[in-house]
């Protein structure tokens, strides 16, 4: 089977989807490395999985419910403790909309 090449263009696209800024050098490096890894994991295509159902969690739980009761949580001060910037009890974030 031919190598499933992950082009630099694709790496840039994945970087964008993952919110990662990549330098040109990183893009080249990851393109080669990720190609190798994907080529390797592609070995699975040789396994006959037939009607085998997927297993995503060993406990195979679906929903876990609890009573909707108010319980103690973090204080505002605790929640903001690690924030880079806070303003009047809010997280301060960079503007995303232009005026």
């Amino acid at each position: 089977m031919p190598k499933q090449v992950l082009t630099e263009k694709e790496v840039k696209h994945i970087g964008k989807l993952s919110n990662l800024e990549l330098s040109e050098k990183e893009t080249q490096k990851f393109s080669a490395e990720l190609t190798d890894i994907l080529d390797f994991v592609e070995n699975l295509s040789a396994v006959d999985t037939g009607e085998t159902p997927a297993l995503s969690n060993i406990n195979e739980k679906t929903n876990v419910f609890r009573e909707d009761e108010v319980r103690p949580g973090l204080t505002q001060k605790q929640a903001l403790k690690n924030a880079k910037e806070a303003h009047k009890g809010f997280f301060k974030v960079p503007a995303i909309l232009k005026e």
Binding site: L44, T49, T52, P53, A54, L55, S56
Partner: peptide
């Protein structure tokens, strides 16, 4: 999804 199926086979 393929990997999740083989995960079942390993289990």
């Amino acid at each position: 999804l393929k990997a999740s199926k083989v995960r079942r086979l390993i289990t």
